[in-house]
Design a protein around this nucleic acid. Sequence first.
DNA 1: CAGAATCCTTACGGATACTG
DNA 2: CAGTATCCGTAAGGATTCTG
Lengths: 135, 135
Amino acid sequence: MVTTPAESTLLGSPYRADCPTRRILDRVGDRWTVLIVGVLWEGDARFSELRRRIEGISQKMLTQTLRGLERDGLVRRTVYPEVPVRVEYALTGAGRTLREPLRMLQEWAVEHLGDVSASQEAYDRVDRTPAGVTG
Amino acid sequence: MVTTPAESTLLGSPYRADCPTRRILDRVGDRWTVLIVGVLWEGDARFSELRRRIEGISQKMLTQTLRGLERDGLVRRTVYPEVPVRVEYALTGAGRTLREPLRMLQEWAVEHLGDVSASQEAYDRVDRTPAGVTG
DNA sequence: CAGAATCCTTACGGATACTG
DNA sequence: CAGTATCCGTAAGGATTCTG
C-alpha cells in the first residue's frame, strides 16, 4: 500500500477515499460480516454451523467473508486435522471489540426501523412526476 | 412490502434477510451515506457544497443517496425557487440520532485500522498455495 | 444550480460441480 | 466436512449528455 501525503491529515479529512472509516465500512458494511460476528460472539463455531445459522448465505460468501475477517485479524481459523477435517472459527480480541459499535448500530436500527419504514411509505405515496409529464 | 410471518419474531431472529439491522446496514453501509451524514452534521448544505466536500462522489450517487436518506426520513430537502434554484439539505431529528452510532464505528475504525492493516500485510505475506501445486 | 436520462463497464454474488 | 473452481446473471456505479 502506498503512503499518501493525505494520510497525515486523515482524521481531519474523513471524506477522502482512503479514510479509516470508509475502509472499515467496506468490511463491515456488506451483507454478511455483521451476522457472522454476531454468531461468533455467542461462541466459536465451525463452518457448517455458521452456514446453518446464517440464513441465506451461500457457501461462497461464507468462505469469502470469513477469509476477509481472518485477513483483518478479526477472526481466527483453526483447522483440526481429523477425518473428516474440522475447522473452527472464533473471534479474536480485536474481533470482540468490534461487537460494541455494531451493537450500537443494531440498537439504533431496532429503535428507528418503525419510523424509517413509515417515512418510506409516506414518501412512496407521493407522486413526484413533474406536472405535464405523461407516463 | 409484503408482511411475512417471520416479522413477529424479527428481534429474536437477527439472521433473517429482512431483520432491522440488515436493512439499516443496507442504507448506512454503502460508501457515501456516512460521509453525507458527517458533512450535514456540521451544518446544512446545498447540493454543490456536498459534491465539493465529499471527495470522489459522482453526481449520480450523491443524488441517489440523498434521495434514499430523504425517503428514510433522515434528511430534509428544501427547494428555494430562486433563479438559479437553490436546494438545501439538512439532517432531521432522526438523522441526528444516527450520528452517535456512526461516530462509535468511526472511532473503532481509527483505533483499529493500524492493527487491521498490519494483519492484512502479514496475511498476504504467507503463501497459501497447497504443497505440490505449481503456478 | 440541481438534477434526470442514458450508456456502459465492472464486480458482486448465486448456482453448480468437483476435491482433499 | 470444508472448502476450490468455474460459469453466469444482475445490478451498482462512473462518465457523459441534456434540461427546467
